[in-house]
Amino acid sequence: MPEIIAIHSFRGGTGKSNTAANLACLLARQGRRVGVVDTDIQSPGIHVLFNLDPKDAAHTLNDFLWGKCDIGRAVYDVSRILGPEERGKLFLIPSSIRTGDIARVLHYGYDINLLKEGYQQAIEQFALDYLFIDTHPGLNEETLMSIAIADTLLILLRPDQQDYQGTAVTVEVSRALEVPRMFLIVNKAPASLCGDALAAKVAATYNCDVAGVLPHADEMMELGSSGIFCLTHPDSSLGRAIDGILRRIET
């Protein structure tokens, strides 16, 4: 059964795009066929991590949502970033970065049935095992759709007072949407906090499984979205922690 995994956070900049990209790459490395959709129509960004030049993307998710093309045309094979020993496949469905395209979708909105159909077609056409949905932060209509479609929802938060309240609302709303599986991921934790104590505290506060605590990594900042952390630093503590999350959500 192909699985749709949405990555969300209440606040911006929590590491959604990076986490989605890293998990997708790890799975592709293991030989799976993995797709990633950028539903952050307002501020797309994940294409940067996959090294896809927007100029090379003749069609985007926006075009599909307006009925200008079918979804297959907006799917780009980005497997080359996996390196020479690639075994699986990695695909990206980008959002348009043109301001006109962005404004238009935001103005008219789109229908969840269409989105779901698009995902279904892409999964079938490219024989995907996993489809990751990168989202815009906050709880607007579009992100609610992504949550509603997901089989598994990963909610990111930082160990920061700013993130706690909104995350609590997000968890309850997602629960109301009856998401089958939901995990919290704590990102950018200082090394000293990366113990079971923090995970336990978060799990107890939100009454929700914690898939892992990811340490803040200076190397990640140095990378500056110019690559996939797990591919460049597989043996770092962050690399291993992301690997741990994957194992946790795979079962």
Partner: peptide, 15 residues
Amino acid sequence: RQVAELQITIDREKQ
């Protein structure tokens, strides 16, 4: 100290 100081306070009514 850090773990002790870490407080996850949530305003349940607002939530």
